[in-house]
């Protein structure tokens, strides 16, 4: 699925710890249009729980949350 999704913004969250991965996604979601997608790469395992929780709370959508090697790759879609 990740291959066919068009990414509008890349976010490098590597090395950041709680709460910053979630905060950075939140600060950047406004930079893409509604329907746009952010691809974020984090190294904090906590982000696997936090970013989906953030999306649920703010009404956005996580299309993908995947562990790839030592990294966590998210596709986050701006819904509103």
């Amino acid at each position: 699925m990740s291959d066919e999704t068009k990414v509008d913004l890349e976010l490098d969250l590597k090395g950041l710890l709680c709460p910053l991965p979630m905060v950075k996604v939140s600060q950047n979601i406004g930079k893409v249009e509604v329907g746009g997608v952010i691809r974020a790469v984090a190294t904090d395992p906590g982000a696997m729980a936090d970013i989906p929780a953030w999306a649920k709370s703010t009404g956005n959508e996580v299309l993908q949350a995947e562990k790839v090697g030592g990294e966590f790759v998210f596709l986050v879609k701006r819904v509103k």
Binding site: C18, P19, M22, V23, V25, S26, Q27, D50, A53, W54, S57, T58
Partner: peptide, 12 residues
């Protein structure tokens, strides 16, 4: 401050 920044990021 972690809770406060997290909550603000979550739109609270």
């Amino acid at each position: 401050f972690i809770i406060a920044t997290g909550a603000a990021a979550m739109g609270m």
